[in-house]
C-alpha cells in the first residue's frame, strides 16, 4: 500500500544489544536481524524478554548498549516522529478514552506526518480510508471503540498503525484475549499485509503452532537470548521446544498447511 521507495522496507537490526530495567539486565548481547517484508514471530516463555525486545525495537525503550539500526540508521538517534513514520506499534491492552470512534483513532495514525499546527490533508484522508479498508473496519468507522468486540477493536488499532504508512509493524501479543475465530482472522490480516503490501511484521506470539502456521520467520527466545531463529520448518523441533519451554512434545506436519505442529506428549 505504501510508497515505491526501493531501498527502505523497515529493516530492523540489532547488534550486541543490551537491555536493562534499572540494574536488572533483561537482554544481553543480542544479535537480531528482522528480515524485511517478511512476517517474523517472536516466541518464548514468559520472562524471556520478547516483549522487552519488541518495545526496544519500537524505540519505546532505550537499549543500555549495542547498536540498533532501522534501515541502516541508528534507531536511538532518530526522532520519535521519524521512527513513527516508519514503524507502527500495537502494544498489549491499549486503552482509548471512552467514546472514541474508530475513525478518531485511525486519524491519530497521521500524527507523525502532520506539522505542529498543520491542517488535515487529502493525503491524510486517503491514508485513513485505505487503512480502514485493509482492516475491514470501514463500516465500523463511526462506532465507539468501547462498543466493539475484541477482534474488531484490535483491527481498529491495526488500522491506526497502517495509517502511519510505515514499512514495519510491531505487534505485542495481538491475539491474546481474542477467541479462536478472531485470532485466525488477525493472523491472516497480518500475513496479507506482508504478502500483498510489502510490510515488515514482527509479532510476539504465545501460540507456537499459530506462529509456525502463519509466520515466515521465527525467533525463539529464552532468558533474553536467541535459542533458534529461522524458518518454521528448521526452527521448530521437539528438542528446541523442550529446551525453551521445558515441555516434551512431538512435532508433526500440520495436515492442512504442511507447517510444523507441536503436540505435547
Amino acid at each position: 500500500m505504501t510508497t515505491d521507495k526501493t531501498t527502505r522496507f523497515g529493516k530492523i537490526e540489532g547488534k550486541g544489544v543490551h537491555i536493562a530495567y534499572g540494574k536488572r539486565r533483561i537482554v544481553e548481547n543480542l544479535d537480531l536481524a528482522i528480515p524485511e517484508r517478511r512476517f517474523t514471530a517472536l516466541i518464548g516463555p514468559n520472562g524471556s524478554g520478547k516483549s522487552t525486545i519488541l518495545r526496544t525495537f519500537a524505540a519505546l525503550m532505550k537499549p543500555s548498549g549495542g547498536n540498533l539500526l532501522l534501515d541502516g540508521r541508528d534507531l536511538t538517534k532518530l526522532s520519535t516522529r521519524e521512527v513513527a513514520r516508519k514503524v507502527g506499534v500495537l502494544l498489549q491492552g491499549p486503552v482509548a478514552p471512552e467514546g472514541l470512534t474508530v475513525a478518531d483513532l485511525v486519524r491519530q495514525g497521521r500524527y507523525p506526518h502532520q506539522q505542529l499546527f498543520g491542517r488535515w490533508s487529502a493525503h491524510d484522508q486517503e491514508a485513513c480510508e485505505e487503512a480502514l479498508m485493509l482492516t475491514g473496519t470501514t463500516d465500523l468507522s463511526d462506532r465507539a471503540l468501547d462498543s466493539l468486540s475484541g477482534g474488531q477493536r484490535q483491527r481498529a488499532w491495526i488500522a491506526m498503525t497502517l495509517a502511519q504508512q510505515g514499512e514495519a509493524l510491531l505487534l505485542d501479543e495481538p491475539t491474546t484475549y481474542l477467541d479462536l475465530e478472531h485470532q485466525i482472522e488477525l493472523m491472516k490480516l497480518i500475513k496479507m499485509l506482508v504478502a500483498k503490501h510489502g510490510k515488515t511484521a514482527v509479532a510476539v506470539l504465545h501460540d507456537i503452532n499459530q506462529a509456525a502456521r502463519f509466520a515466515e520467520h521465527i525467533v525463539i527466545l529464552k532468558d533474553g537470548r536467541i535459542t533458534a531463529a529461522g524458518e518454521p520448518e528448521t526452527v521448530i523441533s521437539a528438542e528446541t521446544i523442550f529446551t525453551v519451554f521445558n515441555v516434551k512434545t512431538m512435532v508433526i506436519r500440520d495436515p492442512v498447511a504442511g507447517t510444523p505442529l507441536c503436540v505435547p506428549l
Binding site: A59, L60, T80, A84, R85, L91, L100, Q108, Y111
Partner: peptide
C-alpha cells in the same frame, strides 16, 4: 489535536511520534 493523541496513553503517544 495533540490532546486526543495524548489521551491514548504514553506508549501509544510515543509510538505515534509524540
Amino acid at each position: 489535536r495533540h490532546l486526543t493523541t495524548l489521551s491514548l496513553g504514553a506508549d501509544a503517544s510515543r509510538s505515534l511520534g509524540q
